[in-house]
Design a protein around this nucleic acid. Structure first.
Length: 427
DNA sequence: TCTCCGATTAGAC
DNA sequence: CTAACGGTCTAATCGGAGA
């Protein structure tokens, strides 16, 4: 029997992606500590190397980091997802040219299958240079026989300047592998997070080598199939396949924290109408219909002195739909059910589930077909909102002054995707 | 007892 | 001035309800 050749999987990861995007249009930010904040300017979600060195933590609430930030003159920017998504597409298109087998794993990461190719080092450097030249985004390349080891190799490439941004695990001897893995803490492994790492430590598993060599039946019994798979991947047995076509979403959520607490039902309905439109637009983009709608409200969970309330309510959509107007009628009804006057709401959202692709959709025998004009209206709405920015056309006439809108006090213009924001970019 | 289902947990980014 | 802590998604697992 012929054994499979070792896979050569490359994981390309953009360095400090959101910060790198912001720097493209602000050369004056080079060398300065910069962070990008999450929606609502809440938490730090991307840090320049300078900000990391100063000690700003990933996911840290911004108000907690502020003292440190002022002391060191750290620049904080609101996140600008339209910009990041556009640059991500450009990076991914460039990387796709290096192999017919590639998987976009996240906004800033991509797997590329280089199995069977020669000169992996020069290919890797070519990837870095090409992406840098055409987009200005710095990336690192890690190569391994499984996805998990490719990720680990990428971690080495990022961490050790000597690697110059490229690391090939497959090029190591067995002794070198053992030595390397024994020096990496186990929580750097893909799939081992803040809960699992301490539990593994109780079993004497602190570094990656110890996880790789751990007694498999015990591991399986104590930590389940997830960790067993991780161990197999560390032993160079591929358990996580390449997914070249992104499968359609099984659930679609649109939710947001409000800039200020909301009390009145009209504002909630206006906000939820926008969430419904966002969620349905995604549903239409992946050519599916949903058969279940959920709406939820949330008080501020960090204000434990205030009364807490997080109701959820679901309604089946008897005839599965992708129509924002139909969904919004239900959402509005659910809000009426959930809303209580005595609470200050900090967050709301909608979830669409029981999603089926249009191609395999079963029509309800007794339901009236959706009027053709309605689906045409949706198509027009998608095109306009795509060109001029989400929310330009809205369902529901409600607009209660937007005191619920997101805080975004430090946002850069959408340099590459939005004509309306161009003047701000040039100014 | 088995199966199904919703809720909960853990993780990624 | 004060208060200020993200958004989406998947898979596994658990526990109760119902067949």
């Amino acid at each position: 029997m012929k054994s499979k050749p070792t896979q050569q999987l490359a994981l390309i990861d953009c360095n400090n992606f959101y910060v790198s995007c912001e720097r493209l249009f602000r050369p004056d930010l080079a060398g300065r500590p910069v962070v990008v904040l999450s929606n609502n300017d809440g938490c730090v979600v991307s840090r320049s190397n300078e900000a990391k060195d100063i000690g700003v933590k990933m996911g840290q609430p911004w108000f907690q980091a502020k003292a440190l930030a002022e002391e060191h003159n750290i620049l904080a920017l609101s996140s600008n997802y339209a910009l990041y998504a556009d640059l991500s597409n450009r990076v991914m298109n460039l990387l796709a040219e290096f192999s017919p087998r590639h998987e976009v794993y996240s906004i800033d990461e991509c797997f590329v299958d280089l199995t069977g190719m020669a000169e992996l080092r020069s290919i890797s450097y070519a990837m870095r240079e090409r992406v840098m030249r055409w987009t200005g985004i710095p990336v690192c390349v890690g190569i391994g026989p499984t996805k998990t080891l490719a990720k680990l190799a990428n971690f080495i490439a990022k961490k050790h300047p000597r690697s110059k941004g490229v690391f090939n695990y497959n090029a190591l001897t067995e002794a070198q592998k053992a030595k390397l893995l024994s020096r990496i803490p186990v929580d750097e492994v893909w799939g081992v997070g803040r809960k699992l790492a301490p539990r593994l430590a109780e079993y004497g598993v602190q570094n990656v080598h110890e996880l790789r060599e751990a007694h498999t039946p015990t591991l399986r019994a104590e930590f389940g199939v997830v960790v067993e798979k991780i161990q197999r991947e560390l032993n160079e047995v591929a358990c996580v396949a390449m997914e070249e076509v992104t499968p359609p979403r099984k659930q679609i959520i649109a939710s947001r924290s409000f800039g200020n607490p909301v009390h009145d039902v009209a504002s909630l309905k206006a906000a939820v109408a926008l969430f419904v439109e966002t969620a349905c637009a995604k549903l239409r983009a992946q050519q599916s219909h949903a058969a279940m709608l959920q709406v939820f409200l949330h008080t501020n969970r960090f204000r434990s002195e205030l009364p807490q309330y997080h109701p959820v309510m679901a309604v089946p959509l008897i005839t599965p739909t992708d129509n924002s107007l139909i969904v919004n009628r239900w959402a509005s009804l659910l809000i009426d059910q959930l809303w209580r006057p005595e609470y200050a709401y900090k967050k709301a959202g909608v979830m669409l589930s029981e999603i089926t692709p249009n191609t395999q959709r079963q029509n309800d025998l007794f339901a009236e077909a959706e009027p053709v004009e309605e689906s045409k209206l949706m198509a027009v709405l998608d095109r306009v909102n795509q060109r001029f920015g989400r929310g330009v056309i809205r369902i529901s006439s409600q607009d209660a002054g937007e005191e619920w809108g997101m805080r975004q006090e430090r946002k850069s213009p959408a340099y590459t995707t939005c004509w309306v924001e161009l003047p701000a970019a040039i100014a």
